[in-house]
Amino acid sequence: MSSRGASAGYFPVPPDAGGRAGRRWWDSHATEYLAEHGDFLGPTDFCWCPEGLREAEAGLLGPVADRDVLEVGAGAAQCSRWLRQQEARVVATDVAGGMLAAGRVLDAQTGVTVPMVQADARTLPFAAESFDIAFTAYGAVPFVPDAERIHAEAARVLRPGGRWVFAVTHPTRWAFPDDPSERGLTATRSYFDRTPYVETDDDGRVTYAEYHRTLGDHVADVVAAGLVLDRLVEPEWPAGHDRTWGGWSAVRGARLPGTAILVTHRP
């Protein structure tokens, strides 16, 4: 979840207001975000989550060399840059121009250039059956009220047999305070309360919104899109990993799952 705004809490907002807020937030916070997390993510590395699970060890996308791969909600395209080095034909998309601009800086710094397209994950500008693999590592899905549209678009652009893999905050986390200390180990909300977390500015405008879905909701969304769930990955907090990232920490990681990664495919 983000840093606090003028007002922050759990309350309903109009779907359009919440959906638009993500683009504005990531546009204005791209530099700040990368300054805080860029070293951990790596400019040409593929990190799935705050637990530090790398695609190089997990292999959740399957073989990528000579495959057409789409990254949705790519941020600065760090994962896509790694895929380019694995000989994948990759395209990175993000709704926020600020993040893509930061990606261009990383292109220049690393010498690994990634094709980037500014696009809403709910209306991808690609023809049907254009990709062998599509994925997102904490991108897009948590920040819109209608994530089912993202899964439907992923299914549309995949070729038969293609994989759609996405990482999100583990849904159980929403029952607990977003606090990396011992206070974050006591449930204070109902897991089944789907009221979004929202921040507003002094004028009451929504500046940030994040949406909760239960594990059942995520499964229902991918099934409705015509996808098949192959695997649910819940990365454990690794020994010796002492980094704190928002509400993620060794304290909480020892007791609670922090990330859920769903591996699916189009039949």
Rank of each mutant, 00 (worst) to 15 (best):
G184V: 10
A187R: 11
F166N: 00
P196T: 07
E236D: 11
P160A: 11
L227N: 01
D202V: 04
R213G: 00
G226P: 09
A175N: 09
V219M: 10
T186Q: 14
R159D: 02
Y208M: 04
V206R: 04
P238H: 07
D217C: 08
R231Q: 15
P196I: 04
E210G: 04
R159Y: 06
P177V: 09
D201E: 10
P171S: 03
T169I: 15
R183C: 03
Y211W: 15
G226L: 11
G240Y: 06
R194W: 01
R159T: 08
V206I: 10
R194Y: 06
A167R: 01
D230W: 05
P160Y: 15
V165G: 00
L185F: 10
A209N: 05
L227P: 01
D221R: 02
D178V: 03
D193V: 14
P171W: 06
L232T: 12
D217V: 07
D202H: 12
V198H: 01
E182I: 11
D221I: 03
T169R: 05
R173N: 14
T195I: 05
R231T: 10
R183E: 14
D217T: 10
L215C: 09
G161P: 11
A167W: 04
A220V: 04
E199K: 02
R163D: 03
D217R: 08
E236I: 01
V206L: 08
A224E: 11
T169N: 13
D178S: 14
S181Q: 09
D202G: 14
L215A: 11
P171I: 05
T214K: 04
T207D: 02
A209C: 13
Y197R: 05
R213K: 12
W164V: 00
E234Q: 14
D178C: 05
D230E: 15
P160C: 13
E236S: 07
A167C: 06
P180G: 08
T186D: 12
R173G: 00
R194I: 07
W174Y: 13
A225D: 03
G184A: 12
P160W: 14
D179Q: 11
L215S: 06
L215Q: 10
P238K: 09
G162P: 01
A209Y: 04
E199V: 09
G226T: 08
F192E: 13
E234Y: 12
T188G: 02
D178K: 11
